[in-house]
Design a protein around this nucleic acid. Structure first.
Lengths: 125, 125
DNA sequence: TTTGCTCTACGAATATATTCGTAATCAAAT
DNA sequence: ATTTGATTACGAATATATTCGTAGAGCAAA
């Protein structure tokens, strides 16, 4: 079995940045985070140290300035979070989640076409 | 503006039960909860009292045994939770959430048809 | 009335999440 | 070598979530 991935809200923000940047220093992450969030540098540092303990990230400590890398994949992480939400919020119905998401967000024609294509590939399979 | 609805995981379990049962006592809720979760009666009671403070529920205290009712709608609650998840986990892309949910859950032909119908109604609109 | 059962109120213990200050360390610039 | 600035380690304060024990009130049966 694989590990359970359950990042907190703050940890999720950092994972998003690491997925985008690839390997990055605390400074890198903090600067990106500071664009949308008001937090001190040591707060970001501490969070990333905790994420290391939880094995959400790995780090290269061979130089003074450590380099962090996401240790969990975006797809797997998103999958687990969505799964929990389906169970906890939507009584186990993935379809109800999909309908809710579609209902609240007017999708573009392109996006709708993309979903249709996806549905087709599932049906014919 | 309306209130922000942000139930915790435990609170969500109770809301699900209240939405299903309608007005119910702590005992009612607890018995349903006990089917899937191992918690003491006073734990359930305390949770529902906290939910009252947060105005997630209302209660009728005119009799000794109080009767609780959900004070937030299922649709609105689900919408807000999905919205937050889209922002925090999917970088603001509702479509990516939809794709993830569809990808992880083999849907039945009926469900796929339901989604198709929904997409059609949006496209032609 | 007394006993026994159910209910609510409430405090407290525990766990987890978030934030930040301070001290120590290291390296580069002077 | 000394100073300056950046970095890490770590403890601590605070907030929130979760759990449950105990006390007291209400009510009905004996």
């Amino acid at each position: 079995m694989q590990q359970t991935i359950k990042p907190t809200e703050s940890e999720m923000e950092i994972l998003n940045i690491l997925w985008e940047l690839g390997p990055a220093t605390v400074r890198d992450v903090h600067e990106k985070l500071a664009l949308t969030k008001d937090a001190g540098y040591t707060t970001t540092l501490k969070l990333m140290q905790i994420m290391l303990e939880k094995q959400l990230v790995t780090r290269d400590a061979s130089t003074k300035t450590h380099v962090y890398t996401a240790a969990v994949s975006q797809h797997n992480t998103r999958g687990q979070i969505v799964q929990r939400m389906i169970e906890n919020v939507f009584n186990g119905s993935a379809m109800q989640l999909v309908m809710q998401a579609l209902g609240n967000h007017p999708a573009s024609a392109d996006e709708l076409a993309q979903i249709r294509q996806y549905l087709d590939s599932k049906t014919t399979k």
